[in-house]
């Protein structure tokens, strides 16, 4: 056996399958099957695919919220046994605590969970402060989620995710609920926060789920294309666009080619899904 962390990728899925059993009929349906994937430290992976292809199922299993029916998921070569703060999750609807303020939401993990272990009170407060500022929410600390715009909620969720200092960022359609302009702005911001300008060793590992192909191409080092019935990995497309990326990259021919290629892979199923 090799020592964990030396030659292993940051995240590895081996033959992962997940079947759900319907509560009454006891009928088993295969949500995903045969998912193999290795993600290197500092890599930004996007998963795209038609709705219902098992993207969220895969992410929940990486997060440890759900266990695979077969196959294994490893972090640094160690099998995932449950949720842990080394893998931070950002949910599609943000999952902010409605009874906590912006500041309390961002500090929730540091104050109540393992991310705060070994930190003094002062260090925790400083880190919360730092993340409030990172996502430009200074001045809104005492507001409640229901008083915020969609874009601001998304920033709170992002700040909460990052404040916990996870190695792996798991994001499930985090920009899905936003309007087009806000999305474009936040995509660039997300890359900055992930560490696009830093060397790969200093970057976080990111798994980002989206149904927006151009968003995937803009953000990712590699795009994982999934297909349905049952959910499986159809293709993995490397995105050879230089970093740091900015808005102009969307106008380049290569960007168009990559988007076209991915669209070609899911077009048939996307039409099927709305039929």
């Amino acid at each position: 056996m090799e020592a964990p962390g030396t030659t292993d990728p940051k995240l590895r899925l081996k033959g992962v399958a997940k079947a759900f059993t319907a509560p009454r009929t006891l009928k088993r349906t295969l949500a995903v099957t045969g998912v193999d994937l290795a993600v290197e430290a500092g890599e930004f992976i996007c998963i795209v695919g038609p709705s219902g292809c098992g993207k969220s199922t895969v992410m929940n299993m990486i997060a440890g919220l759900d266990m695979p029916s077969s196959g294994t998921i490893e972090i640094n070569g160690v099998p995932v046994a449950g949720p842990g703060a080394d893998r931070g999750v950002m949910f599609q609807d943000y999952a902010l605590f409605p009874w906590l303020t912006v500041e309390e939401n961002i500090g929730f993990g540091l104050r109540n969970g393992t991310p705060g272990n070994g930190l003094s009170r002062g260090e925790v407060e400083a880190r919360v402060r730092e993340h409030v500022e990172l996502v430009q929410l200074a001045g809104s600390e005492t507001k409640y989620p229901h008083q915020l715009s969609g874009g601001m909620r998304q920033r709170v969720a992002l700040a909460r995710l990052l404040a916990n200092g996870p190695d792996v960022l798991l994001m499930d359609e985090p920009l899905g609920a936003l309007d087009a302009q806000t999305r474009l702005i936040l995509q660039t911001e997300l890359l900055r926060i992930w560490g696009e300008t830093a060397p790969q060793a200093a970057r976080k590992t990111a798994v980002f789920i989206t149904h927006d192909i151009e968003e995937a191409v803009f953000l990712a080092d590699r795009v994982v294309v999934m297909s349905r019935h049952p959910g499986r990995v159809r293709a993995v497309i490397p995105v050879d666009l230089a970093r740091p990326r900015d808005e102009h990259i969307r106008a380049t021919p290569r960007f168009g080619q990559l988007s076209e290629e991915i669209w070609g892979l899911i077009r048939a199923e996307a039409y099927e899904a709305i039929a």
Partner: peptide, 24 residues
């Protein structure tokens, strides 16, 4: 979802009941 979010932040089950389930 909120319980799941707290679990991913390494919050203990007892605290989840007090800090997430109770206010909910």
């Amino acid at each position: 979802k909120l319980v799941a979010a707290a679990r991913t932040m390494g919050v203990s089950p007892l605290r989840i009941v007090r800090l997430v389930v109770l206010p909910g």
